Simulated scan of single mutants.
Amino acid sequence: MKLDGIASFVAVAEAGSISEAARSLRLSKSVVSERLGELERSVGTILLHRTTRRLSVTEDGAAFLERAKRIVREVEEAAADLAERRGTLAGPMRIAAPITFGRLHLGPALFPFLAAHPQVELILDLDDRRVDIASGAYDGVIRHGVIADTRLMVWRLAPSRRFLVASADYLDREGTPRSIGELDRHKGLFYSNRGAADWRFLGPDGVEIVRAKVALRVNNGDMIRDAAIAGLGIGLLPTFIAGPEIRAGRLKLIDIGIRSEPEFVFLAHPEGRRPSAKLRALAEHLKRSFGDPPYWEEGMSIAAST
């Protein structure tokens, strides 16, 4: 049983096709197919059903897959550990992050890190859907929000503040709310991946959840920002998205007398797995790059709205 055959099987099972797996492995389809066939002969069973339309994992293949993933991961981590013992950060690193933050801030911070460590092979998955950190599919997951799950192994990268914002046109038409109770009659722009409890504030008696009338519910922060600029309603947006629009005057801050619940940009990694040296180095690099307070809040006169 050869390691390259196991790695090919894992890649095909995860990609759902030999073509996609071949691209990710930088091999030809024929080489991947040959390695799969050799692996199946060595284990004495069929691991994948192949038809002209689709490819699926057999029952035996599913039983073998989880251990195959662990084998590939352990070998990758062993090779990376040897490189780190020589003072070099090397090997694959899989990270997931939200789209807007990834495009606006994570990418510019990552590029110098990758240039300084050319042997690191970063696989970055930008997606606003929540990722199951415990699945082990990623070395680390970067997220923005409240750190509520104490089971997560979390490194805080930067504090993050969210503020109620709207266009001047909307506020001229509908009025400016001055208290949490006045928000009920306004139209809200909500981030759907947070569920129904998107607007959370710290009141004198603890967390208060506001559910305004829904004008738009969407799973992307850029869309909420643009909808607020278009005058469709009020959004509760982090400064890393809304900062430039606030400074330019296209969005106005709304002060209701209480703050939104404290949040962070954080990197979570699977519990029970020792984080690699390159993941720790990346976390420290991102913390330095973002700053405390983070650079995206510089030059903003928001003290009156806190």
Rank of each mutant, 00 (worst) to 15 (best):
V10C: 04
A15K: 14
Y191Q: 06
T100K: 07
V265E: 05
E297D: 12
S305I: 05
D184W: 03
L126C: 07
G102D: 05
G37Q: 13
D255T: 05
I46T: 14
L189Q: 06
R94F: 10
P177F: 07
V12E: 10
D198Y: 15
I234T: 04
G16V: 09
S260I: 02
E14T: 08
I209C: 02
A62P: 03
N219Q: 09
D255A: 05
W155R: 14
M153L: 06
K252P: 00
T176F: 03
R50C: 04
R211Q: 14
G102L: 07
F266C: 00
P92V: 11
V207N: 04
T51P: 02
L236A: 08
A62W: 12
E34R: 15
L65C: 09
G136T: 03
I256C: 04
V32D: 11
A277W: 05
R225V: 10
S24C: 07
A62N: 10
I229H: 05
S8W: 05
I209H: 08
R194C: 02
S167C: 09
G299E: 09
T88K: 15
G203V: 07
R162G: 02
T58I: 11
R35E: 06
V214G: 03
F290P: 07
V31L: 15
V32H: 10
L251V: 01
D292R: 13
L157H: 10
T58F: 15
D139C: 02
V141N: 00
P177I: 01
E297G: 00
R288Q: 12
A212N: 06
M1H: 10
M1E: 05
F266K: 02
A281Y: 13
G136E: 05
A96Y: 04
A63W: 06
D222F: 10
L110Y: 09
S301M: 10
D81Y: 13
P112S: 13
R247A: 15
A230H: 02
W155I: 12
T100S: 15
L237S: 02
I6Y: 01
P244I: 11
G181D: 15
E34H: 14
A68H: 02
G87I: 10
G299C: 08
L126R: 11
L39P: 01
D292L: 08
G91C: 11
F101T: 03
S301N: 13
D127Q: 00
F264C: 04
A166D: 04
R85G: 04
S167T: 05
V12P: 03
I18D: 08
F163I: 07
I142V: 13
N193A: 09
L122Q: 09
R156N: 05
A15Q: 13
A96P: 01
P159I: 02
E245N: 09
G136Y: 07
F190P: 03
L124Y: 12
K2W: 06
E298M: 09
A90E: 11
I99V: 15
G5Q: 03
P275E: 12
A277S: 14
R129D: 00
I258T: 11
H285S: 14
R250E: 12
M1D: 04
A21N: 07
K2G: 09
P262L: 07
K69P: 00
L267H: 09
G37M: 08
K69D: 06
D226N: 14
T239Q: 07
V131A: 01
F240P: 06
F111R: 15
R85F: 12
L183D: 06
D132Y: 00
S17Q: 09
